[in-house]
Design a protein around this nucleic acid. Sequence first.
DNA 1: CATTCCAATGCAAGCGATTGCATATTGTTT
DNA 2: AAACAATATGCAATCGCTTGCATTGGAATG
Lengths: 359, 359
Amino acid sequence: MLTLQSNVAKHIAMQSKTPRASRVVTLKQVATDAGVHSSTVSRALNPRTRHMIADEIVQRVMTSAKRLGYRPNSAAASLRTGTSRLVGVLLPDLFNPVFAPILGGITAALFREGYGTIIADAGQEGVDTNELIERLIGRQVDGLILATAARHDDTVSACIENGVPVVLVNRAEEDGKASAVVSDDEKGMALAVDHLVKLGHKSIGHIAGLPNLSTGYRRRHGYEAAMRAHGLPVGPIEIASAYSREAGEIAAGQLLDRQRVSAIVAANDLLALGAYQALNARGLSCPEDVSIVGHNDMPLVDMLQPPLTTVRISHREMGREAAQLLLRNINEPSGLAARNVVLMPTLMVRGSTAAPKTR
Amino acid sequence: MLTLQSNVAKHIAMQSKTPRASRVVTLKQVATDAGVHSSTVSRALNPRTRHMIADEIVQRVMTSAKRLGYRPNSAAASLRTGTSRLVGVLLPDLFNPVFAPILGGITAALFREGYGTIIADAGQEGVDTNELIERLIGRQVDGLILATAARHDDTVSACIENGVPVVLVNRAEEDGKASAVVSDDEKGMALAVDHLVKLGHKSIGHIAGLPNLSTGYRRRHGYEAAMRAHGLPVGPIEIASAYSREAGEIAAGQLLDRQRVSAIVAANDLLALGAYQALNARGLSCPEDVSIVGHNDMPLVDMLQPPLTTVRISHREMGREAAQLLLRNINEPSGLAARNVVLMPTLMVRGSTAAPKTR
DNA sequence: CATTCCAATGCAAGCGATTGCATATTGTTT
DNA sequence: AAACAATATGCAATCGCTTGCATTGGAATG
């Protein structure tokens, strides 16, 4: 078990208490120092208004600012202008490894444009999503990126009613209320099914994700469409109760017990790993007895035994695109029409898929 | 999906100045609605000052506020009070899977106390850490949590000079300038070495992390101490150039080519996985030929072949502790003495360790 | 040379919430 | 019953920055 130890022996130096407020430099102080009015300093320091000020003065102001260590107070600016250059990101669960790269892509793109990222994790126990949104909006965020959207989502509506620009990422919403950046889930499933069919599989099952999430819904849809396109029977399909290994194991077990298949396409890597476990529990092996395909290309799945064949999604790029779309939305005075950006996935062929046994 | 806007339409849209601002409710509006002064509303809504106001009025105010959908403007509050209830978190690399759980623990703990989390990722190309810190401080954060600290770190000094409370997490800093929450790295290595020795290993090598990070330095130190405690020869030791699979593979390869060992303790799970690869490349197998122990217990390492024996660290708890320590630091008027909180790791024994071959 | 115009800078009014102080309204004491 | 205390509420200044408007001086124009 884990024990906490407050290590008395190790606290060494007192932090010298600095009278914090005394060292805060304001615009007015820079103005005094440079011998101009504070409004001139403001304009000289802002690239968009700098052209109004004589070059010589700009230089003087910038020198003073640097020497005094001036740092603009963003709260004051935010209060005055009504914009915070802050974007809120709502995540369904920080512990799910797909969201870290999305977040990374978002922060990188936002940072480049001078925006900050404030995050909220809806995956905590006893946390109300609407309260999270409320708090983000209360912090004057200029926009929100939601990675949590269900197919019909009223938190999206709440944001729109509040006039806050919203972009969805990874999961789309089907009422067309907000823009979204997603992977082409149907296409991803088609890649998986095509690959299996080419190997000779005819009986291919699907472990589906939750149907109220666009990923679960559309991947299932994509699976069905691809099977039909090949003239193969659709099913069996088992819906997992969550995107987790445990749920995947249960669903795969039910699927295997129900019908003999030579391959399983899972809606998600974790579900695929659950299927590995279900196979092991039944003394079956992958890919000899059953081929398995995942979705997402999570870290480390290439090192499993067997290495997982999976549909790769560039989560980082997804986050970047979402951030860029949101910024355009924020800067467009009358709001942009909702639009979807669909990224193309690719298939990573590894060891978990092989030709079916010639019986 | 994409709608083009005519010039005329755009012109009109721009003239209607306030499509969004119209719905923002301020304290004063609530005051008018409730028939009291705005200062009364402020006091009634703030739990700490609520006692000054008659219960009946408090009720009336709260009803009005709710009905109008009042949401406090945190920029205004921040400007007035000089505190933002915002904490900055600096991550070395969002793509490293250990940091997501740390971040999750931080946000959960901060959220519970009404604080927001603003993140910055130093792992981007071409991003200066000091600029990140500058920008966070400019946003009036009340404190910072750094997961990036080197053993001797001047960004920490920069924060302290600015009078911003700082707490380090995962990686400590050795000059005692700031508090830190870390795992007991020496102890973790002792657990690993003890386990191997108990299995009968005598020749145990170490793949070390970077010596300028406390994790790399102290784990190596812990390994050496544990070996000496058992009266075993220290080494061979190979220092990896980064915490990555590739670096681990290279280091493990050099180690194996240099000296015959029956076990390897890696400073990190990714390094351990690199060692897996190096073993494979040499036709050796784990644990038959060489036992391997990792550090961190990353997701999925239990599903590898063989499942990785590793030192588990509760990253989530680490984040939570760091957040709590920071909040105490913020609320302590004269600043808290720097202190380290050391969490105890546990050993997860899995399939990558076994008794050495009896030759 | 007078007039107009433009560019550069100063002035001052806020943005919305907090809080020390003043004031009003009770209740309590002598 | 007068004086006082205590409690509840109102008043107004303030936090630091931005920006519409006023002002100035000098260049361009007629």
